[in-house]
């Protein structure tokens, strides 16, 4: 599966890419929503991992845009913020998964299983 990772933290982004490749996915990393928009539009069966707290265009806005696509990819939200913040940001949005940091490989493999 092709997985886009939109995460501005270099350490998180790099380690996430490593583990996703390890699971068997192809990884494309972006440091913000703007740089994802510059490439080709992700669509099913791709997956997009979005950090909720992005510089520039907020993560929640990117999630909304992705879910409204004609052929939406799988969307997985990652965040280190509080549950209150998550609920507030995601009002009305139902992504395919929400994972709170620190992340672990089993949780990732469950949401984005290797094929």
């Amino acid at each position: 599966m092709r997985v886009h990772v939109v995460e501005d933290d270099a350490g998180v982004s790099d380690s996430l890419a490593l583990i996703l490749r390890n699971i068997g996915h192809t990884v494309i990393s972006h440091r913000d929503a703007e740089s994802l928009f510059k490439g080709s539009v992700p669509e099913a069966p791709d997956a997009v991992i979005v950090d909720l707290s992005l510089p520039g265009i907020p993560g929640a806005q990117l999630v909304r845009w992705l879910l409204n696509l004609a052929a939406p990819p799988r969307v997985v939200v990652i965040t280190g913020q509080s549950q209150g913040f998550i609920d507030h940001q995601l009002r009305g949005l139902v992504p395919d998964g929400v994972m709170r940091k620190p992340l672990d490989v089993d949780a990732i493999a469950r949401v984005l299983p290797p094929h």
């Binding site: 350490g11 998180v12 380690s15 490593l18 940091k101 672990d104």
Partner: peptide, 11 residues
């Protein structure tokens, strides 16, 4: 703090 911990754990 969660950021480096996440990265550390994944590595």
């Amino acid at each position: 703090l969660n950021q480096p911990l996440t990265a550390l754990m994944l590595y």
